[in-house]
Computed example of a mutant assay.
Amino acid sequence: MARSLPPLTWFRAFEAAARHLSFTAAAAEIGLTQSAVSQQVKALETRLGVVLFNRKPRGLALTDDGRRLLPQVGAALERLAIATETFDLGSPDKVLTVAMSVSMAQWVVAPRLADFTNRHPGLRLRILSAIWPDDFHSAMADVDIRFGSEKQVGQGARELTPNRLIALRSPELEAPLSEAALIETVGTSEGWKSWGREAGVDGLEPTLFADSYGMALQLAVHGNGIALASELLARHALETGRLVRAHDAWIAGKEGYYLSVNQPGEAARSFEEWILGELMGR
């Protein structure tokens, strides 16, 4: 059986860090946190069994293995970029294109979308799942809903609230915080330790890690533990009883979801008004 390849995201983090010789600069370029880039590079090093960077107080230095890998990764990413340019990802006429994170699409928009489509019969809607900043760029969407910090998402974007992190569990999971598995999302600035300080609960250590708030919620729904996740994403699951609060405490999220309208028009404005009313008008 052929050995599986490491995730593309690990290679992108490595290539950006190698060009900048900085995890911080790489994070700013590809729209992730410095911690997420560092973790992805470390995961790639572990997978390959080599050290790619020498970590120094004032930056990074490529090792011999890192120098050997960089041109191959750079060439592969360039070929992928050229290949995707042959496809038209623009918005067809009379189709409203909305690009958003997978978590936002699954947990916020999908459960409520019938209300919007019923209000606008005849409108064709295209939803694109996007992860990287250049995914949004290539999509040329009429509306974007991005995840990140205010600096990462750019000017003119409107924060969707509430931007709070809360503890969530399945109604069937009765184990207390001290005994349940704690689910944490990697690549975000706040986690269980910060939440524990606010709640006055010491010694909280996550044991189950997810790559997005949406995946953390999915794990919690199936009784795998208590997730610390976005209240904005969890609202519908709370309303329908799929999840319940495991504790009343909350902390503010340093990253969140931001909406921007790129192509002002009647359909785009209608979607903006609808989603803001659904999330922030209650």
Rank of each mutant, 00 (worst) to 15 (best):
R119E: 12
N118P: 02
I131G: 10
D248N: 13
R235T: 11
T185F: 11
A227W: 05
W195M: 10
V186I: 12
F116V: 10
I226G: 03
A249R: 10
F116G: 04
H137S: 09
W250D: 14
E239K: 15
R164A: 10
L204R: 02
V244E: 09
R197M: 13
N163H: 10
L173K: 03
L123F: 10
D134F: 11
S138H: 12
E231A: 13
M140I: 14
D248H: 14
G241P: 09
P121C: 11
N224H: 10
H222C: 02
R197C: 12
E190L: 15
W195E: 14
G196Y: 03
A130L: 14
E198I: 08
L204D: 00
F147T: 00
G203P: 05
G241L: 13
L173P: 01
S149A: 08
N118V: 11
A234R: 11
A249N: 07
P171F: 11
T207C: 05
L128S: 03
A114C: 14
E184R: 14
A114F: 12
D142H: 08
L217W: 07
E150Y: 02
P171I: 10
R245I: 00
P121A: 06
V244S: 04
I131N: 12
V244G: 00
G148V: 07
R126L: 07
E231N: 06
L228R: 06
H120M: 09
T161V: 15
L233A: 07
M215T: 15
L165P: 06
